[in-house]
Design a protein around this nucleic acid. Structure first.
Lengths: 258, 258
DNA sequence: TTTATAATTAACAAAATGTTTATTGTTAAT
DNA sequence: ATTAACAATAAACATTTTGTTAATTATAAA
């Protein structure tokens, strides 16, 4: 078998090559909904979509026109899909340091009517302020934030419905099982701000309960209390601030409580 | 920006296309090392590698010759990378129903000297019996199982060292945070068999302790005791058997104990 | 001055875990 | 036939953690 394998690998021209390689990005942001003074925030997880134009630059009917789609573009031959995602997103938002993670490949034959096009899919976490700003600047008819509760009801281009469904699943897992939530928060945050982020993706009673969560946060090894600094963002009373510690955390499902 | 985006997507011929799209597979198996009668097994997580031939089918020097590599091959234009992985693996092992999961894309320019080749990487879980058999059948000089503790010391082809390192990280996470361990086990297994699988990737004391683990397994919602059936595989005394229940499990790191 | 309210602490019962010590059932050795 | 060995459990109990409810604190706003 390994000879067969070697043969296959060698004879490169035998194989048809893809017609394109794109990098696509599910851009998530969390907006604070009822952000009243001295109140803990209520948050909602949103995804940014762009509306495909009716006509292309040459005045012809555009493919998948008027449908909502995730942003993306072709990967250049001097960059990785990850770098392409980063480049495109930084062009889009004018900010750097965005958290991006690759989560899937979409390559089903026929997924794009223009040819055999491989999509390398990423998700990105963008602080709310940037996207709200961006939307205000542009005329913005073609860019919109959708709640993850609503987005599956839209008519979406290509196989983007599947990509988005997968992205929501992955970011939900990551928010709960990694420290990626830090990318939705300021460096120093209150327990209720972290709690609000987690509440966008879980109903776990231990996270929903203020008393339990504010007690628990003190014993988490990947979170540290910031000494001598408080805020009144969420309460009239000065509130303790916390910060994430860089650390890999893996907790087996076999040792958890049910 | 969305116009720029639409333009980019339309003008497909402007972009260089990849020279190839491959599907590569890190094949993991767990072999029971000291499998004495009436003893709980001691297991070791292994990865299957193939040795690249010195010469190709035309008698020329092969690229990356004599180095160890993960199996893989080109994706055909009528299949997905996932299907290609499945096809290649089934050709290889002659078994079906293998658990396969996509975990990464490797597309760094220059990663393959033959051109711009995108690798879609998967990991597969194969029961030990099959691979041992296979190895015995072939002359098998070119196929070998390496312990994940040793594999990083080998000279590996292309960027396979990175791919393997990532695969080990991913399967470690998955073994602990999902029910994927079931693919290493018979349908009905004892607590010590499951424990042996988990011990290949963790030192968590709650998993290492026989008493704790055998007590805990009864309360896990995704594992069920098999009524009226026992085995003496691991002990002289008849031992209870368990089975996995199909179920998604997510346990937040924010509610775990530390 | 009072009210309202977010954050936090206190208190305590209930549940889970760590740990040590028995018990059980069976094979293999004497 | 008896006994030693041993994996799998169960039992017991101290310790830790959690769920829950109630109090306390601090401060803006009425």
């Amino acid at each position: 078998m390994s000879n067969k394998h070697a043969l296959k690998q060698y004879d490169i021209k035998k194989y048809r090559t893809p017609d394109g390689y794109t990098s696509d990005i599910c851009v998530f942001t969390i907006i604070a909904e009822k952000n009243e003074a001295y109140k803990p925030p209520t948050m909602d997880l949103k995804i940014m979509l762009i509306k495909r134009a009716a006509l292309d630059s040459e005045g012809n009917m555009n493919i998948e026109a008027n449908k909502w789609a995730i942003p993306g573009g072709f990967v250049q031959d001097d960059e990785t899909g990850f770098q392409a995602a980063k480049r495109e997103l930084e062009e889009e938002t004018n900010i750097s340091g965005i958290h991006i993670k690759q989560f899937g490949v979409y390559d089903k034959p026929g997924r794009d009517p223009r040819g055999w096009i491989i999509s390398n899919a990423h998700y990105a976490i963008v602080p709310d302020t940037y996207l709200s700003l961006r939307k205000a600047q542009d005329d913005a008819a073609d860019i919109e934030l959708f709640s993850i509760k609503d987005v599956m009801d839209l008519e979406l281009a290509f196989d983007h419905k599947q990509i988005i469904a997968d992205a929501i699943q992955v970011i939900t897992n990551d928010l709960l099982q990694t420290t990626v939530a830090k990318n939705f928060l300021p460096d120093n945050f209150t327990y209720s701000e972290l709690q609000a982020v987690l509440k966008t993706v879980t109903n776990d009673p231990a996270i929903l309960s203020d008393q339990s969560f504010s007690r628990k946060i003190k014993s988490l090894p990947f979170i540290q209390e910031v000494q001598g600094k408080t805020t009144t963002r969420t309460s009239k009373r000065a509130t303790k601030l916390y910060t994430f510690i860089e650390m890999d955390v893996i907790k087996p499902i076999y040792t958890a409580r049910y």
